[in-house]
Design a protein around this nucleic acid. Sequence first.
DNA 1: ACTTGACCAGATTTCAAATTTGGTCATACA
DNA 2: TGTATGACCAAATTTGAAATCTGGTCAAGT
Lengths: 212, 212
Amino acid sequence: MTPRTDRETKILDVAADLLVRHGYRRVTIDDVAGAAGIGKGTVYLHWKTREELFGAVFAREISAAVADMVAALRADPAVALLHRFAAEFFLAILRRPLLYGMVIGDVQMWGKLVGSEVGYDGGRHNAVMASYMDVLAVRGLVRKDLAPPELTYAFQSVFEGFIYAEREVGSESTRDERARLLSTTVESAFSRPGIPDDALADEVAVLLSGLV
Amino acid sequence: MTPRTDRETKILDVAADLLVRHGYRRVTIDDVAGAAGIGKGTVYLHWKTREELFGAVFAREISAAVADMVAALRADPAVALLHRFAAEFFLAILRRPLLYGMVIGDVQMWGKLVGSEVGYDGGRHNAVMASYMDVLAVRGLVRKDLAPPELTYAFQSVFEGFIYAEREVGSESTRDERARLLSTTVESAFSRPGIPDDALADEVAVLLSGLV
DNA sequence: ACTTGACCAGATTTCAAATTTGGTCATACA
DNA sequence: TGTATGACCAAATTTGAAATCTGGTCAAGT
């Protein structure tokens, strides 16, 4: 059954490439099939609709970013701290052309797919974020004068603010510098001093894996 | 010369009302003239183009919000502190249907007018913000381990993040609560303890007046 | 058993005619 | 004499039908 999975991967690879180069609207199933060296019908053996195919590309892209986060977490448990997490995730998103394009080009690249429930569940994303915040709260690693739901809301606002800001960023700073700035901001806004242990990193990694 | 100004005000009032009700694209100069009870040509005695007229509406709306800020500053000098300023400005924007619509409906309400230079100069906005941050830095009212340009960038990212978040906010919190949350976030992220005096409030008020 | 591309209906694009609208200015009016 | 107006025009926008394209199916081929 491996060849089947291989083909699926190949199709997703090809689709991601076309998506990055031409944008959501301009890529047809025929294009994808042609570039993958197979017939159009074969694509439909894997996904029922065009939306599902591109949704799968999107989901895989997110999964890859999340996988990066898990890897970073394993390499350095301190990434479990909210401010480190923020910077790392910021970079993980901007590093991937498709996600970056989604942020910058917005509608251009993904059309109405973003926001729709195909391929990726935004609700689950929020749920995981909330759980993560709970974990941090229990360990006393975030400020205690705000409830976890408030912290989650504020954190996401800040995070998305920095992401959106990438749209009109000049050349006065590097992306790494902006990631550090986000980290510093989040740290003083929400974090409490504390040493992260491997158990915490594991717990967060498991949470994140729920998104893959 | 007062009747002329009165008529200008009337036209702007009527245009703002139509804009809020039908959106940028659907409002014609004839509509505006008709609703103001004057001929179309008369509108062109005040503004050279349609874009300039709506630009003036936009500018007046911003000016009103800024005037609110100046008033708040006079009433309570503590509003000069970055976190108080943030909450107050947040509310001043969301309180005005046209600006609120710009945030929420985005393209729907303002079309390509936003981002264009007509009626309002985004560059000046940034300059004023930078000056404001300099003033705070000189008085030691913001953290010292970040340079003012970094502080400005981070603050604007956070502020806009909270504004954007209004788009998909649920009913679990009130707008005032979200303003307080923004305030708290900004305070711990960027502020340093300090007592604001009337001189500071004046200075900031003067800066802001440069936007009117 | 698996793959394919011809095929079809519905969606999208084209393109020209019809309509609307921004902007002007000769005329009316105070 | 100075101000206001709406008929007027060119340009932009909308409409609508024909032409084209594309998502999705499935009978035929391997």
